[in-house]
Design a protein around this nucleic acid. Structure first.
Ligand SMILES: [Mn+2]
Ligand SMILES: [Mn+2]
Ligand SMILES: [Zn+2]
Ligand SMILES: [Zn+2]
Lengths: 138, 138
DNA sequence: TAAAATAATGCACTTCCATTGCATTGATTA
DNA sequence: TAATCAATGCAATGGAAGTGCATTATTTTA
């Protein structure tokens, strides 16, 4: 049993071929991926299975969702010390309008946001759009 | 010719019955609205017309879009000194998870966000989720 | 180990929202 | 008034997310 399999088991989910494949696919990626990206990478597999696999990963805090405003949900592996559940230590996300890539800026935390009296802030989503490092040097 | 009609003409679009109605509907609202909200308010009108009216308003910077992460696009009238085009003076948006309302916090500007070297920030979308003032007092 | 229980997968179908083509109606201008 | 151009209405499309149910695989337990 290798690292990936051990990790999945530790997270309390059954270790299946599909889950290992998807997990490894995500860990090789430097950027966030959509369900379609996964579909294209595993065209033999059914979309529903991929969809449910990613949902399971989400539930178990293996991946987190990113809503970058493009209308398509992006996913990325959580960092070892990620606390998606607690909504603390939230990093920001960057969407490149040139190449379309969305990346986690894991060590750029979201600053404290002030809200008016009476409002209770529970969660913050912050997406910066612009040109990424790879596109800006071209 | 009243205020609304003058305003629309000033923005360089034809003054039609539908546009006046939708503009007034938006200006009476304290919160952002969805296309469905407008549909429900004007059930005699065709959805496409409402859709295109709001798109025209957007192009002419009469309204701005808000993506609050619910998956449905919200719209709100721009403030008199709104610069949606320049991406300057961006205010933040608040989405109440209790009543579902999304509001513009027009005098809560988005703080300067640092991005890594090589990245060029052009636009920032910031949505705070939580409990709004009306819901928190209940 | 075999049977029973539980979870994962695959297929078909649905829902929701955004968007477009095209014909028609209405407004503006020459 | 006729010609022109924009707004409206209808029908259809497309993309993405989500669900019900039968089948297959994995795990439990007797
Ligand atoms: Mn992230
Ligand atoms: Mn706003
Ligand atoms: Zn890029
Ligand atoms: Zn509320």
């Amino acid at each position: 049993m290798n690292k990936t399999e051990q990790f999945l088991q530790l997270k309390g989910i059954r270790v299946t071929a599909m889950r290992i494949l998807i997990y490894n696919f995500l860990s090789e990626k430097k950027v966030t991926v959509t369900l379609s990206d996964i579909e294209n990478a595993f065209d033999k597999a059914d979309r529903t299975t991929l969809y449910r696999t990613i949902k399971t990963f989400e539930d178990k805090e293996i991946v987190h969702q990113i809503d970058d405003g493009t209308g398509v949900t992006k996913y990325a592996l959580c960092e070892p010390n990620c606390h998606c559940d607690l909504n603390t230590d939230l990093h920001l996300h960057f969407h490149c309008t040139q190449c379309g890539a969305t990346v986690c800026l894991t060590d750029h935390k979201i600053p404290k946001i002030k809200v008016p009296n009476g409002y209770i802030a529970e969660h913050v989503n912050l997406v910066v759009k612009g040109i990424c490092d790879k596109c800006s040097v071209k």
